Simulated scan of single mutants.
Amino acid sequence: MTQGSKAAAAHLVHMRSFGGHRREYLTLFSRMFTLEASTGKVSRRNILRLARAKRLLFGTIDDDYLGFFLVGMLRAALGRRTVGVFLRPQTCFNTSGLRYRIKKAAFATARMIPRLSVFTIVPFSVAPEYASIATGGLIDPQMWDQYGSRNDPLNEEIYEIIKNKAAGRKVLSFIGSVTEIKGTRLLNDLLNSPDWPADKLLLVIAGKFPHSNFDLADKADRIGSLVIDRYVTDQEISGIYQASDLVWCCYHPEYNQASGIFGRSIQFRRTPIVRRHSIIERVSKEVSAQCVPLDYESPTRSLDAIRENVATVESAETFHNLAFEDWESEFYHTVDQAL
C-alpha cells in the first residue's frame, strides 16, 4: 500500500451492511465527502482503523448503535470527531418498552459528548422532539440526491407498458416489498370497495409479494391493475416513477419515519399518498410539496380522498418548485463542518 492510499484510507464512511437504501447512502456519502467506503459490524477486526481515521462518518448508525457509541467515545477521548446519520430516531420515543427508554437516554447522553455529532434525516422543524437526542435535523438525501439529472436512466419498456395499460388514466404506483408495514391492509380494504375508481386510476404494484399478501395480488389483478410480482431494478423503478402521477407512501403507523419511496416521489415530482399526521405528511408541508393524506383507520374517508384527488393531481410540469439545491447544500455544509 502506498503512502497516498494510506492517507485515503484515513477518511472513512462506515456502515454495517448494504440493506435497504444503505448502498445508495454509502455511494452518495463516499462521493460527496471524498470518503472511502467501510462496511461490517464494529469489532476487534476494524475498531482500530475506525478509531484512527482522520475523518469518520457513520452513514447510518441504526444497524450498530453500540458500535457507533463505542467508536465515537473512543475517538472523542483521542480528540477526534465522529458523525453519525440516524435514520429511525422515532424509535427513541416509543413508550411501549424499557429498551426504548434506555435508547432515548443513551442518545440524550451522547448528544452532550464533545466531538460526537448525530444528524437525523428529518428536520427539527418537523419533529422538534428530535432535538433532545441529536445534534441537528436535515432533509433526507433520498429527497435530493438525484435532482436535475437522473443517475438511473429511464427504463422505456416498463414506462410504455404502464402508459399503454393506463390508456389515459392517472397512475398510482406501489413500489417495493408488498408487506403490511407498507400499508397493504388499508390498500386491500380500498380495493374491496365497489367505488374504487378503476375507470380513472390504474394501480401499479411493483415488488415481491410474500405469501401472506397473495390475496392482494389476486384482488388487484381482478380489477385490472398491473401487478409485477418480482424484484424490480433501479432502472425499472425510475421508469415507474416517470409513468406515475401518484405514489403510495401510506404506511402502517408503526412505520412513522423518513421513507426512500416518499423521497424519490418528491424528486420525480410525483404526488405521494401518505398517512395523515405521519412524519412524511409533516415533511411534505414543511417543504411545500403536494401530498394526499389518508385516514389510515378509515377506508371510507381514504377512498373519498383518493377519488377527490385523482382528477386534480398536479402534473410534473406544475409541481411545486422545490429547493433541492438548498437541501443538498445544507446537508453537505452541516455534515462536512462536523467532520
Rank of each mutant, 00 (worst) to 15 (best):
A10W: 04
F209T: 01
D326W: 09
P197F: 05
T312G: 11
F209G: 01
V204L: 02
G84D: 00
F68L: 07
T34C: 15
E314L: 14
G239C: 08
A51M: 07
A131P: 03
I280Q: 00
E236S: 06
T318L: 10
L66A: 15
P210N: 11
D234M: 14
S265Q: 05
G72D: 01
A243Q: 03
A289C: 08
G224W: 09
I261V: 12
F107W: 06
T60M: 07
V71R: 00
V313W: 03
F331I: 07
P194A: 11
I273G: 00
R23E: 07
E281L: 11
R275F: 05
D336L: 07
S288R: 10
A243W: 03
K104W: 09
T271N: 04
P210K: 10
F124A: 02
E281S: 09
Q142R: 13
G137W: 00
S177W: 13
R169S: 02
L12P: 00
A166V: 08
Q257E: 15
G72K: 00
S193C: 11
L226H: 03
A106E: 04
Y100V: 05
L154K: 04
S177I: 13
K182N: 03
Y296H: 03
E314M: 14
L201N: 00
D195F: 14
L191T: 11
Y251T: 04
T184S: 08
N309Q: 13
G79I: 09
E314H: 13
A105T: 14
G20Y: 09
P210A: 10
A305D: 08
K219G: 06
G263K: 01
K285T: 13
T82V: 10
T34V: 14
A338V: 09
A305P: 04
F214R: 15
Q267G: 06
D215Q: 15
D152Y: 10
I205A: 00
G20I: 06
T95D: 14
F107M: 04
Y130I: 11
P210C: 12
G137P: 00
V71H: 01
A338C: 10
R307E: 09
S125P: 05
S38A: 11
E317G: 10
D145I: 11
S177F: 13
S212C: 14
Y255M: 14
K54N: 07
A338I: 07
L48D: 13
N256G: 09
A167C: 11
P128I: 07
F324C: 04
G137N: 02
N192S: 15
L246C: 05
A53T: 01
M32R: 06
F68Q: 01
D229C: 05
F58L: 05
V287T: 04
N155S: 06
A217D: 05
L12M: 11
E286N: 13
D221E: 14
L50D: 00
R307Q: 13
S225L: 05
L56I: 04
S302W: 01
C92G: 06
H21S: 06
